[in-house]
Nucleic acid binder design. Structure first.
Lengths: 227, 227
DNA sequence: CGTCGTATTAAGTATAGACATATTTTTGGA
DNA sequence: TCCAAAAATATGTCTATACTTAATACGACG
């Protein structure tokens, strides 16, 4: 009795080895099930999994074919900064820099889809790894969601507070490179104009704008993953 | 009759709304199936899908609980550069800069797991969008895999050639920021030291080292995705 | 010669029942 | 009291069968 995972692995091996070349239509589920010695449901589960990951294109009546030009997908895990530091076996420290209500720039209003230029809570903080600057957190928060009274970021970072209070959210994410400005130079202790890796993230919870944050990492930071 | 996708959506709604709070153990499959009005197999398919994406933690006998601190996952699509340019409704152009056998630096040998410092094929090229520099491709190739005779990169970029010839591969991927050096300044026509977004990718096919490439994008480039 | 409806096909899915497997809990001894 | 063996339990999976749905092929008809 073969598990669908086994069947999946065998099928993937055929794709990788070229036994099923890109663009080629492969036999129908029912026939493959017989060949692999399993039920059609099992075959279906395996092929569906491969299709989900972009290895196969499947169409009703049209049959299944190996993707000719698969869109490579890279999956990055975006952990909480403290965990990220601790995973590197470093000691995490955190320093709140500013926390006040301010009128945000146009770009932030647009990202959060706030029509009027209402005042938002701006929180900036520095994360350290083994005492050295690791990452600057520059955040705009919807004050209705996280009022200064309820959410105090002196000890627990906004980054972590949010993960606990708005666990499952949607939003956008962007990676880019930016030069160090005066504020970043001061916090990260890097050269002016240094190339820094940055992440912009905007978060909504059931349509309500929650926060827009820019995380800027110290020089040399790399975001890595396997394919 | 509910599809597992429908059931999945309903369950996800409960998680997002907080009806099933983070850390909480939810009822067993059999009971949920009854509540949702479907068979256990259907419930299982739905919950398994949610567990795959990190929303749930499931253990035999232990039951299913909502992930307390989910690791956020971001999925990026890594397209062929030409497609990437064309998706932005720009015209893609390509210019081969160099193509010769050279001894690679230590770092490249290490990434490709080449013991001896054998000569590799180095290919550098420039990709343009609407005539403007878009991305510099700096690649080291295993000459045994892509000999100069068979693989000519004057017209078709190595990027594209490889997608066609080694479709399903494994490897590593890293995103980072780097300053523009002299070579990049010349090709991308940017300021010296400008902050540039870069991708390192090393590719293996069934254990054989294929290629290691650095893609450096023109200033202002952002790698975006939805969560 | 086109085009509209129908038959056919292959994937998508649902279900009940059975068994497998990993843990936890309980129980029975030393 | 403590530990090992056994029972209980929730998820993991397979199977056979039946039905649904989307897309294609094809033939009748204007």
């Amino acid at each position: 009795m073969k598990s669908w995972q086994t069947v999946r692995a065998e099928a993937l091996a055929r794709i990788r080895s070229g036994a099923w070349p890109p663009g080629e239509t492969i036999p129908r589920e029912a026939d493959l099930a017989e060949e692999f010695g399993c039920a059609r449901a099992t075959m279906n589960r395996a092929m569906q999994s491969l299709a989900d990951e972009g290895y196969l294109d499947r169409r009703r009546k049209g049959g299944t074919r190996v993707a000719a030009m698969p869109v490579r997908k890279a999956v990055f895990e975006i952990p909480v900064i403290r965990q990220q530091v601790e995973q590197r076996r470093s000691t995490h420290a955190y320093r709140l820099v500013t926390d006040r209500l301010t009128t945000p720039p146009e770009a932030v209003c647009a990202a959060l889809k706030f029509g009027s230029r209402m005042q938002l809570r701006r929180v900036t903080a520095l994360h350290l790894a083994d005492g050295k600057p690791f990452c600057v957190e520059d955040r705009w928060l919807n004050p209705a969601f996280a009022p200064p009274g309820e959410a105090d970021f002196a000890e627990v970072s906004a980054n972590e507070w949010l993960v606990r209070h708005v666990t499952y959210s949607t939003g956008t994410l962007a990676f880019y490179a930016r030069p160090a400005n005066a504020a970043l130079v001061r916090l990260l202790k890097c050269a002016h104009g240094a190339s820094l890796f940055a992440i912009d993230r905007t978060t909504f919870d059931a349509g309500t704008p929650i926060t827009s944050v820019t995380l800027t990492y110290a020089p040399g930071y790399r975001m890595e993953t396997l394919m």
